[in-house]
Amino acid sequence: MSQRDHRHDLEQIARDAGVRAHVHAVRLSEPTEPLGLAADVEVAIASVYKLPLALVWADLVEAGELDPAEPLRLAAGARMPGPTGIAVLQDDVTMTQRDLIRLMLTISDNAAGDAIFGRIRSGRIHHRLTQLGLPAALVRQSSAEETRAILRDTESADRPAALRALADPDHPTYTSQYDPAYSSAATPDQLTAVLRILWSRAGRAHDLVRAAMARQAWRHRIGSGFPHDDVTIFGKTGSLGSLRHEAAVVHFPHEYPIAVAVLTQAVRPEQHLPRVDAAIGELARRAVTPLRMPDTPRPTPPARRS
């Protein structure tokens, strides 16, 4: 199947699911012919920013600039409420950097992300991203800033109300957080580049990040395309209003890992669209399958005696 046929396939799936889709997949081995759909188009990535943030954190830990065991205090009054983790709690929390990273990646805890973002500070994050050859826009802002923006744009009192406003089927509602110029933003191929760097690192902090990604609490997006218990998905999702994303490494046993990013924006505004989540899995499967390759040469069968 040619690149063009693949693109057509991916377009059909996206069209059927009612989404604009941007896809990129690449095998994490020697350079390969990557596969994608609008892979160089920049889009707002919502919580996927926590993936490049985790890479920056692990690099700085390995460089000795951060102490992963340092406890951080997240005072209840200073936290922006969010949908999961510490962000839903009522009382003060003190937690080490590495455990915050685990919560930030496994359940996309906004409070944990904000704490790590605040500890490193944006200047140092952007500097490190630039050193890696990545755009600073990957981590333009924290989750708290994203939440403040949607509250402002929808004139809502809290995050659930803002999300309800964005989900109104009768009144299309816009937020600056759909705009890559005002949010953390990336192209799909930049996100697979982040994964490639992360997979090239041998540090313990990088191990911790990869292990946390493998324990992500949900497997309804890219994971739904690989319903196999022996296939590991190291993923990070991002969701905001009509945006549904995931970047992941898909690892079949005895094969090279494959990085894939699927970024979508649905034309339906509702908060729950299982069909779109499943389409993300289907898009990932179609993009990954042609790139699969054994990582060890097959044993040559013994020569037959005639």
Partner: peptide, 15 residues
């Protein structure tokens, strides 16, 4: 509505 209308302009959603 809703549908993909990339490249086009659209009026208000009529319910």
């Amino acid at each position: 509505h809703p549908g993909i209308i990339d490249g086009l302009t659209a009026g208000t959603v009529l319910v």
